[in-house]
């Protein structure tokens, strides 16, 4: 099972993730806000959530908390701007698997996702 949920308020980021990961064989779903993402998770199950840290109504940390409570088995990779690295580190403490910095290249994204599914040394 390689279902990935991308939660990001920015359409271009969502599309970028989708266009990068679908050719790699992943099943990618998109959500425009934290709430929408959680609703989607209630219906379907995901192996990985790519979660934007900065969003308008519900921020990434809160969404992360909810996921960790509701779906402890689901791994979360935070997507963050450079300035929020501090918060990203906080997210790791709260149980996020990893974080990647914006702007990321397709290679970076693929590497990070692979790491989640196949472990660190998998290339």
């Amino acid at each position: 099972m390689n279902k990935i949920l991308v939660i990001d308020d920015e359409a271009i980021v969502r599309t970028s993730c989708q266009r990068t990961l679908v050719p790699e064989g992943y099943d990618v779903r998109l959500a425009t806000s934290g709430q929408e993402g959680l609703d989607l998770m209630a219906k379907e199950s995901f192996s990985l959530v790519l979660l934007d840290l900065k969003m308008p109504d519900m921020d990434g940390i809160e969404v992360l908390n909810r996921i960790k409570t509701g779906w402890p088995g689901t791994k979360v990779v935070m997507v963050t701007g450079y300035s929020t690295v501090d918060t990203a580190v906080q997210a790791l403490r709260l149980g996020a698997y990893n974080f990647i910095e914006k702007p990321f290249t397709p290679d970076t994204l693929i590497a990070a996702v692979r790491e989640v599914f196949y472990g660190k040394n998998q290339d």
Binding site: E10, I12, V13, T15, S16, R19, T20, G81, Y82, K102, P103, F104, T105, P106, D107, L109
Partner: peptide, 13 residues
């Protein structure tokens, strides 16, 4: 950073 992510991704694609 957000549009830049798009530019980079789509350029690569």
């Amino acid at each position: 950073n957000n549009p830049l992510t798009g530019v980079v991704t789509f350029a690569h694609l």
